[in-house]
């Protein structure tokens, strides 16, 4: 394992941190598109819905190789499981009797419940390595395998490349899906691609951030960026920067200080950045709004004063 030597920054931590940084940047870009498509909570459903797939993949690994923790298998299990959750949400929505949030919430919780039952089953089996599964709930860079770190870095890099190549089409999708349709980019297919990339992102994030908090990597950076800039292209850049920085900083902090879980630390770094932005951002920050409101109150008092 990578972090066996205890707290401190070694070469291994650097590998994980650079992978996390790439993933954070990808999450920021992906999250910005999701924010515009109003589908951020899809990431929450995807995160929780990976659990049964991961546990099943663990069982498959055991059966095929006698070893449950095969990174590529676990990754594929996570993606497939989250994808089937997405299909179930679509099925629920087809009835037109359930609002999207209720459909998302119920699928998320159900898949997670199924995952817990499977997890209990695996733990009742007379084999080793199950502890590595529970770690997926909250993530831990320190206990990542070398192969997992490499998969993370490579996967995150590929994800970023795909995002960069398709950014133009996604921007179109965000601004005007109808226009995209009219010009030969099916908005449905683009949405599907976006969702697919999201599943990859979430599955890659599991070992470091955990399935409960994987959502934060796509949710928080775009909101921070939005407080500072208005244009989509600026938002994409800033969100990528913030996401990459937050993920790196979180990994380093949790490596340097004892008893600091990686996933939660990454999320808290991002939350702190958001809190600071909420206070001080130039136009939408709390301070700026308070000032403008005071001016307004004065003006209304003078207008109302003529009564």
């Amino acid at each position: 394992m990578l972090g066996d030597t205890g707290p401190g920054i070694g070469l291994n931590t650097l590998v994980v941190a650079s992978g996390a940084g790439l993933l954070g940047a990808g999450g920021g870009v992906l999250g910005t598109f999701l924010l515009y498509r109003r589908r951020v909570m899809l990431a929450d459903a995807a995160g929780h819905a990976t659990l049964p797939g991961v546990v099943l993949a663990f069982l498959v690994g055991l059966a095929l190789f006698g070893e449950g923790r095969v990174p590529v298998l676990l990754f594929s299990g996570a993606v497939l499981s989250a994808a089937s959750a997405g299909l179930l949400v679509e099925t629920y929505l087809r009835t037109r009797r359930l609002p999207e949030d209720a459909a998302t919430a119920s699928v998320l919780a159900t898949f997670y419940g199924a995952g817990l039952v499977l997890l209990d089953y695996v733990q009742a089996l007379p084999v080793g390595g199950q502890a590595g599964l529970e770690r997926l709930l909250l993530g831990s860079a320190a206990s990542m395998l070398r192969a997992e770190a490499e998969l993370l870095a490579a996967g995150a890099f590929v994800l970023l490349v795909v995002l960069a190549l398709s950014a133009k089409e996604f921007r179109l999708l965000c601004f005007d899906p109808g226009f995209a349709d009219a010009h030969g980019w099916s908005s449905r297919r683009l949405d599907l691609l976006l969702t697919g990339l999201l599943l990859v992102q979430i599955a890659l994030a599991l070992p470091i951030v955990g399935l409960v908090l994987a959502l934060a990597l796509v949710a928080t950076p775009p909101v921070i960026a939005r407080l500072w800039v208005d244009r989509l292209s600026h938002m994409l850049g800033l969100a990528a920067l913030v996401g990459g920085f937050g993920a790196c900083a979180g990994v380093f902090l949790s490596a340097l200080l004892p008893r600091l879980p990686t996933g939660a630390t990454v999320v808290l770094v991002l939350a702190a950045l958001l809190a600071a932005s909420l206070g001080t951002a130039p136009r939408r920050g709390w301070w700026a709004v308070a000032l403008r409101r005071r001016a307004l109150r004065r003006r209304s008092a003078s207008v109302g004063g003529k009564r």
Binding site: V289, R292, R293, L296, G304, K306
Partner: peptide
């Protein structure tokens, strides 16, 4: 003299 504002 009705004066209304949403936020700012």
């Amino acid at each position: 003299g009705l004066f209304v504002a949403y936020d700012d």
